[in-house]
Design a protein around this nucleic acid. Structure first.
Length: 845
RNA sequence: GCGAGAGUGGCGGAACUGGCAGACGCGCUGGACUUAGGAUCCAGUGGGUAACUCCGUAGGGGUUCAACUCCCCUCUCUCGCACCA
């Protein structure tokens, strides 16, 4: 055995060995339990960065650990290969997006292979290949059939200078990221997925995502933004029209003193004819800080009170939410309050604090008795509220509903409105339908044909895929680049055979990533097929049914909403198509923290990036893996430390030196213990005990919450103890061999290459990958002597060694007999004595 | 503003259901080996004190024999949402 640890040679050797034996390719085997371990696939931007390294190492440690625990582990990798950077590179460097993308994939794949990640590369998925995006198109057509895909006009961010559409992320302070010109909104016909149909299910199933971080579930809940309320029609005075409003606070309906409608509300255009008013409305501020409005000149009638209230256009009312119109209740809504103050509109109080309702009944009150508590304390004069009272309370000035609590009033008023036909109960969501049209080249063509006589015609299934044309010029100008590709655009109508034109928009790349986990389960790019006979039949026999759902998903928190919500949506749609019978794609989710250096996220612009290639060349991937796992628990941010990496390298060197020291003895077979040693001869070896304790501790750390940092710390303790061990009997040497064997096995998920090499060096023939995870023996792990802590009045006053398992009285006696303690308690009366089994004694004097 | 999370040595971080605060690593100090050490090994390392010991988990209060851990208040930081009616 070499004296020096040489990671470069070892890592090359074992990576070749694993590849040659094809160890990580998996099949559906019903006899063993499956485990689907998935990391978010990367966009092939050029090079792997430290964030990827951390993400993939976490996944790899889990995958390797689960294999040793006897699971049939699916651990795949692929490429989120469509996207804008490829197009930008094409424009900038005059290289085709496909060439750029595939070169990046080649390089990044070689990087991943150098990291020793245990992927089943046979299942690789590359979303920009026709075999993959064909199924994007197929799913699109299915969704069209199901009424889940539709087309409508909507506005997009448009840069007039670049003459192109921009994504939200490309608009910075309302300016184009590339040319700094002001971005405008432009109306375009776009395709949408009706994710709102699933809003209720996405929300209610979120409760069942027990394996997800609470934070992510909360973010999704907020994003879906469900709220229950009523829609109420307010008749417009001297007109046959009415305004429909949405409110969740129908208990304040009697306090509505004016209406606020959005600038873009259709009634504005219909009603307002006066030139000056139109101008004023147009020049309303967009600043969310300023509350501004314009009186339309029209009045509406409050259906409950019959009051005539003015209709205002207000800059803070959004057309996109609810009905684009609200009833304004200044006494109980801060925005309305500020607005009313500014324009001198009446404020009518209809909710008061519960205890002030009593006072009200005694007839003492005008407006103001329901002051917000803060003001009441400050002794503000009655009748001059300074802010709206937005909480629930008791209704006043509300006709038949007065004296009810807000909660009941909401029920009763809603029922009453429905009875009278003034309104109805509704549920509103903040979630919008998902616009998927992108006026870009490097994406999945939307499989639609426009025919002059037949209209919108879906491309027939048997004509899929609609292949993205390769010969195209990208200049960074013009709308959809595909529109310029005449051969692509001009086609025949599948229905009437007349000349027709293809849709030239491509799909949002989030479509690709919304079901890639299903593509892996089906066997990767070449094997995706949703239409074979067997897919229709016995669903439980399908690979999909075997592998799904993903047991452990690992990735960054930045995808907490979009990608993870879209994936949940797609899974439900694919279920409703009848291809799978699960409701949720990801059982457990681990959101790993960022990699930080010098207090900031690693980024090119900050110049604090660490290059994985450099580190792997210098220390080997095992060192990088160990450092990444040791420096912080996976969900927290990881502070990069070059010295910390050195420490990880030293640790592996120490292990190497340790095995080298005993390599000759270890190689001799027949003198090791069985892995589950329990012979009496070895009972009293403290190293044997430590080994069993370490197995227990590491297994616990991994099983509980994947806290690999404490797992490695425990392994370090074991290595320290083995290093200090001096074998001087045959029994000692047996313990030593056992201990070293276990140590290598425990190390193997973290540093698989050195583990394989050491395993071979101690004379093992089979790969460490074929070994089972070590098992501890509770009996051997048990301490036979414990350190008893003695406290007096809760303060540490002494420590003594006592045999384990003594009863309370014996423990007390031991504690009393300690001379130091006797001195401390001399002359004092003992009030109480507490014994904690196996830990401490506390005497209260 | 609302919501979520966090605050522990010089640093990264341990401490599982309340039971020795600081595991493990980095750094630092001293020593050994050495032509040399930025290699390796050994010892030490929260702060104050000569010492008995005392003080220490953002700050203040509380519960308890016992609090990093539970409860209340305050401060700071990070993230998410941000006129959602």
């Amino acid at each position: 055995m070499e004296e020096k640890y040489n990671p470069e040679d070892i890592e090359k050797k074992w990576q070749a060995n694993w590849e040659q034996r094809n160890l990580f390719a998996v099949k559906e085997v019903s006899s063993s339990p499956k485990f689907y371990c998935l990391e978010m696939f990367p966009y092939p931007s050029g090079k792997i960065h430290m964030g990827h390294v951390r993400n993939y190492v976490i996944g790899d440690v889990i995958a390797r650990y689960k294999r040793m625990r006897g699971f049939n582990v699916l651990h795949p990798m692929g490429w989120d290969a469509f996207g804008l950077p490829a197009e930008n590179a094409a424009i900038k460097h005059r290289v085709h997006p496909a060439k750029w993308t595939f070169e990046n994939i080649d390089y990044m794949k070689s990087q991943l292979k150098k990291m020793g990640l245990s992927y089943d590369w046979e299942r690789e998925v590359t979303t920009c290949k026709p075999e993959y995006y064909k199924w994007n198109q197929w799913l699109f057509l299915k969704m069209l059939e199901m009424g889940l895909a539709y087309k409508k006009a909507s506005s997009v961010n448009w840069c007039p200078s670049c003459d192109t559409v921009l994504a939200n992320e490309q608009v910075i302070d309302e300016k184009c990221w590339r040319c700094d010109n002001i971005v405008i909104q432009k109306k375009l016909e776009q395709w949408f997925f009706k994710i709102t149909n699933y809003a209720e299910e996405l929300l209610s199933d979120a409760d069942a995502l027990a394996g997800w971080p609470e934070k992510v579930v909360t973010m999704q809940r907020n994003w879906i933004g469900r709220s229950e309320g009523v829609e109420v029609d307010f008749r417009i005075v001297d007109s046959d029209k009415s305004i429909r409003i949405f409110t969740t606070r129908q208990d304040t309906l009697y306090g509505a003193t004016f209406m606020s409608i959005a600038k873009k509300h259709p009634l504005v255009e219909e009603l307002v004819k006066d030139e000056k008013t139109i101008k004023d409305i147009e020049s309303l501020s967009e600043d969310p800080e300023k509350k501004e409005g314009v009186f339309t000149g029209f009045y509406a009638e409050n259906p409950l009170t019959g009051d005539r209230i003015p209709i205002w256009v207000a800059n803070f009312v959004l057309m996109e939410y609810g009905t684009g119109a609200v009833m304004a209740v200044p006494a109980h809504d801060q925005r309305d309050f500020d607005f009313a103050k500014k324009y001198d509109l009446p404020i009518k109080e209809v909710i008061v604090l519960e205890n002030s309702a009593e006072a009200r009944k005694r007839g003492s009150a005008e407006v103001g008795a329901g002051l917000a508590p803060a003001q009441a304390e400050k002794g503000q004069p009655q009748g001059l509220p300074l802010q709206a009272f937005e909480e629930d309370g008791i209704l006043v000035n509300s006709g038949q509903f007065s004296n009810l609590h807000s909660k009941e009033a909401r029920e009763q008023i809603a029922d009453y409105l429905e009875q009278k036909g003034f309104g109805k109960k509704v549920v509103n969501y903040k979630l919008r339908d998902w616009g998927i049209s992108r006026q870009r080249y490097w994406g999945t063509p939307i499989p639609i044909i426009y025919c002059n006589s037949c209209g919108i015609v879906p491309v027939p299934e048997d004509q899929l895929p609609v292949v993205l044309p390769q010969d195209i010029m990208l200049r960074g100008k013009g709308a959809s680049p595909l529109a310029e590709a005449a051969d692509f655009v001009n086609t025949k109508c599948p229905k009437c055979d007349a000349p027709a034109k293809r849709e030239t928009d491509t799909m949002d790349t989030f479509v690709d990533s919304s079901w890639y986990f299903i593509a892996y389960a089906l066997g990767g790019n070449d094997k995706i097929n949703f239409t074979t006979k067997s897919n229709v039949g016995a669903i439980h026999e399908l690979p999909l049914q075997y592998w799904m759902p993903v047991d452990q998903y690992i990735g960054g928190i930045e995808h907490a909403v979009l990608h993870l919500l879209y994936s949940r949506f797609f899974t439900k749609v694919i279920r409703d198509i009848g291809l799978i019978n699960i409701n949720e794609p990801f059982t457990s989710l681990l959101t790993q923290g960022m990699v930080i250096k010098d207090g900031a996220k690693m980024s090119k612009s900050k110049g604090n990036v660490v290059d994985p290639d450099f580190l792997i060349n210098k220390y080997g991937t095992d060192t990088v893996r160990v450092f990444c796992m040791f420096a912080a628990p996976p969900e927290r941010d990881l502070e990069w430390s070059d010295q910390g990496v050195e420490g990880a390298y030293r640790f592996l060197n120490r292990i190497w030196g340790l095995v080298h020291k005993y390599s000759n003895e270890l190689r001799v077979t027949g003198n090791g213990l069985k892995d589950k040693a329990n012979s009496l001869v070895t009972r009293h070896s403290s190293l044997l005990r430590k080994t069993h304790q370490t197995i227990k501790k590491i297994t616990g750390s991994i099983e509980r919450d994947y806290h690999f940092n404490t797992a490695i710390a425990a392994l370090m303790e074991l290595v320290n103890e083995i290093t200090a061990f001096n074998p001087d009997s045959a029994n000692d040497r047996r313990v030593l061999k056992f201990s070293i064997r276990q140590m290598i096995l425990l190390l193997s998920p973290f540093a698989p290459h050195i583990a394989e090499e050491l395993w071979e060096q101690i004379g093992e023939k089979e790969s460490v990958l074929k070994e089972s995870w070590p098992v501890w023996d509770e009996e051997i792990a048990k301490e036979d002597e414990i350190e008893l802590v003695i406290q007096i009045n809760g303060k540490l006053r002494g420590k003594i060694m006592i045999p384990a398992g003594l009863d309370d009285d014996a423990v007390k006696e031991k504690a009393f007999s300690d001379p130091k303690i006797q001195e401390q308690i001399r002359g004092k009366t003992l009030k109480k004595i507490v014994v904690v089994k196996g830990k401490l004694v506390n005497m209260v004097v």
